[in-house]
Design a protein around this nucleic acid. Structure first.
Lengths: 349, 349
DNA sequence: GTGAAAGCGCTAACAA
DNA sequence: TTGTTAGCGCTTTCAC
C-alpha cells in the first residue's frame, strides 16, 4: 500500500500501457502502430496516435533495444576532434544517421590505444550496431575486440579480413596527381612533400601516392624533400623550417593535410617568404578554413560528406542485412584539386 | 525445440546468467559484485570476477537503464560544431563525463529551432540524466520541453526559474575590461566593437559589457563603431568593411568572438592595413587557433575546460541529489586577457 | 551474506 | 485485425 501511494503521487512519464489504456486497445496494438505495422486498422491507429499526442508519449529506447536487440546507435571514432577535419566529418555523419533514425556515439581516440580501447568497450556496452573507425591508422589493437563481437565495422584505408567489416578506400592519387600536374604546368621542378606521421595509414598512402605521381612524370624526389611531420599546424611550421635549412630548396611544397599547409603558410610569412611568389603551397583535405587562409589555400579536397556517407552506408548495409554474401565491402571516396591562391609560377624556376 | 536448437548454435554474448553459472552463484550476487555492493564475501566476489574475466562479460547498459531508471547518459547541445570553440568544449565535457562513468550524446542545433526540438526529443527518448544547453541563446522553445520532463538542465547565461535547472554565468566583464584598459593604455581612443548576433544572449551580454567598460573609462562609443556581425569569419570580414567605409575610423577593434577577429585580420591584410600598426584587434574565446593567426591574436580567454567542468558539475549535482533544496544553482566562469601580437600603439593616435 | 523472484517498458510469437 | 503472453538482461526487494 505504501508503494502504491508513492507511485500514484509521482506523475510517471507515460508508458505504452497508459497509451493503450487511454486508446482502449492492447499494448501490442500501440507497439504495432508506432512501428508502422500495416496490420493495424485505421480506426485503431487513429485512436492510438491521438492518445500518444495527448499523453506526449514517446517510447523508451532502452526497453526497445533490450527486447529487439537493436539499439539504433552507431559509433564513430575519430582521431582527434580538435582537428577541424573531424568535426565536419562528424557533423555529416550525424546528419545522415539521424535522418535514418540512428543515434551516434562519438569518441576521439587522441591517438592513444588505451583511450581507444576504452571507447570501444563503452560502445560495446551500449550495444552499438556498427562502428566507423575513422582514425586513419593505429586501429589494429581494437579491431580484434570489435570484430570478435561480430559487430559491423567500417575502416578507412585498412582492409580487415573479417566478416561484417568493410573498408573505405580513399583515392588520393587522382587529387595528388592533379596537384603535381598543376605545379609542373606552372613550371615547378623542385617539389617537396611534408608527410603525415608514418603510423597513420593515410599518411603513408598519401606519401606513396605523391612519390608515384612524381615518378610517373619523371620528376626527381630528393630524399631531403620528403619530411615526416605530424598533421598539425606546429608540424607544418617545423617542416618548413627543415626545408629552409636545406641548401637546395624546393619551389613548391605539397602537404599531407591542410593543417600542415597552414603551418607552412604561417612560417613562410614569418620568414619573409611570399606565398605563392616565393613558394607554392598545396594542402589536402579542404577544411572549411582553407578558403580563408592568407592566401587562400590551393588544396586537394577530400569531401567529408562523401566520407561520412560511405561510412554510414557501409554500416547500415552490414547492420540491416546480416550475412548477405554479396554485400558491398569496399567503398571508394575520391579527391580533387581545388585551385586557390597559394600556388603560382616559381620566381626562380 | 527448434528454438532451443537455434539458441545453442549461436554463441550468444555472455549475460549475467552465464557468469552466475560459471561462478556457481546467483545472478543477484553477480550484480552486487559488479556494482561494488559491500555485502558480498571476498570468496564469492573473487569467483565472480574470475568468471567475468573468463567470459569477457560486460553488462548490457540498456537492461541496466531500464531497471534502474538511470541511463548514465548526459546530453550536450551546442550551437554549431563547426565553430572550433565547440569541439574543444565537447572534448572537455566528454573527458570529464567519461571519467565519471557517464556517456555523452552530442547534438548541434545549427541555430535551427526545429533541429533543436528534434535533438531534445532524441535525448529524452534515450533517457538522458541531464542536458547541457550550450547554445548561448535561442534556447527558449526547448526549455519548456525539457523542464517539463523534470530533467536536469544547465544553461549558459540564461536563468530559468524551474526546478533542476542551473545556470552558468560568464563573467565577460573582467576580460573585456582588461582588454579595454590595455587598449587605452596603449593610447587608443577610438575603439570599435564587432558584436555577435543579437539573438544570442552571450552576444548581447558581451556588447553590454563592452559599453559598460567604455563608459566607466569615460570613453565615447560612436554608434557606428558597434556593428552587429554573426560570429563567423565572413561576418568579421564584412564588419571590417563597414568600419573602413566610415569617415572617422577606429584605431582598435574588439570582436565578440575569435572567428570574427580572424575575419578582421584577414580583411585588413587584403586591404593593405597592417595589424597591429594600423589597427589593433582583440578577439574573445581564445580558440586553439588564435595562437597561430598572423599576427597571433590578442584575445579574451574563455576557458572551455572551465565551462565544461561547470556544466558537468551542475548536471551531476542535480542528477545525483534530486530535490536537495540547498543545491548550487549558479556557476561562474571567468575570462582573462591573453596578450599576443595583434595589439600595439596606434600609429595615428 | 546469499538467493529467489518480481518487474523495468517494450517487441514478437502465438492464439483467437 | 487484435489481444495475450513470454521474455530481453538486469537491479532490487524480500526471505532465508
Amino acid at each position: 500500500m505504501v508503494r502504491k501511494a508513492k507511485r500514484s503521487t509521482t506523475p510517471k512519464t507515460p508508458d505504452i500501457r497508459s497509451v493503450a489504456a487511454l486508446a482502449k486497445v492492447s499494448i501490442a496494438t500501440v507497439s504495432r502502430t508506432i512501428n508502422g505495422s500495416p496490420a493495424v486498422s485505421d480506426r485503431l491507429s487513429q485512436r492510438v496516435w491521438q492518445a500518444i499526442d495527448q499523453l506526449k508519449y514517446f517510447p523508451n529506447t532502452h526497453a526497445r533495444s533490450l527486447v529487439s536487440g537493436r539499439s539504433r546507435i552507431l559509433g564513430i571514432i575519430v582521431e582527434n576532434i580538435t582537428n577541424p577535419f573531424f568535426p565536419e566529418l562528424i557533423q555529416s555523419f550525424e546528419e545522415i544517421a539521424v535522418a535514418h533514425g540512428y543515434e551516434i556515439l562519438v569518441s576521439s581516440s587522441n591517438s592513444d590505444p588505451v583511450t581507444l580501447t576504452a571507447c570501444v568497450r563503452r560502445m560495446l556496452e551500449r550495444k552499438v550496431e556498427g562502428v566507423a573507425v575513422l582514425t586513419f591508422g593505429e586501429e589494429e589493437p581494437v579491431l580484434d575486440q570489435l570484430a570478435h563481437h561480430d559487430i559491423p565495422i567500417v575502416l578507412a584505408e585498412f582492409r580487415l579480413d573479417s566478416p561484417k567489416t568493410s573498408t573505405i578506400l580513399l583515392d588520393y592519387s587522382t587529387g595528388i596527381r592533379s596537384a603535381i600536374d598543376h605545379l609542373v604546368d606552372l613550371g615547378h621542378r623542385r617539389i617537396a612533400f611534408l608527410a603525415g606521421p608514418h603510423k597513420l595509414h593515410s599518411a603513408v598512402t598519401r606519401e606513396n601516392d605523391f612519390r608515384a605521381a612524381m615518378q610517373s612524370l619523371a620528376m626527381p624526389v630528393d630524399k631531403k624533400w620528403v619530411i615526416e611531420c605530424d598533421h598539425t599546424l606546429k608540424g607544418g611550421v617545423s617542416g618548413f623550417a627543415q626545408l629552409q635549412a636545406l641548401q637546395s630548396r624546393p619551389t613548391a611544397v605539397v602537404c599531407s593535410n591542410d593543417m600542415t599547409a597552414i603551418g607552412v603558410l604561417r612560417a613562410a610569412y614569418m620568414d619573409g617568404l611570399r606565398v605563392p611568389q616565393d613558394l607554392s603551397v598545396v594542402g589536402l583535405d579542404d577544411i572549411d578554413f582553407a578558403e580563408f587562409t592568407l592566401p587562400p589555400l590551393t588544396t586537394i579536397r577530400l569531401s567529408r560528406a562523401d566520407l561520412a556517407r560511405a561510412a554510414f552506408e557501409a554500416l547500415r548495409q552490414q547492420a540491416e542485412n546480416p550475412r548477405d554474401p554479396k554485400m558491398q565491402r569496399e567503398f571508394l571516396v575520391s579527391t580533387s584539386l581545388v585551385l586557390r591562391g597559394s600556388t603560382a609560377k616559381p620566381a626562380t624556376p
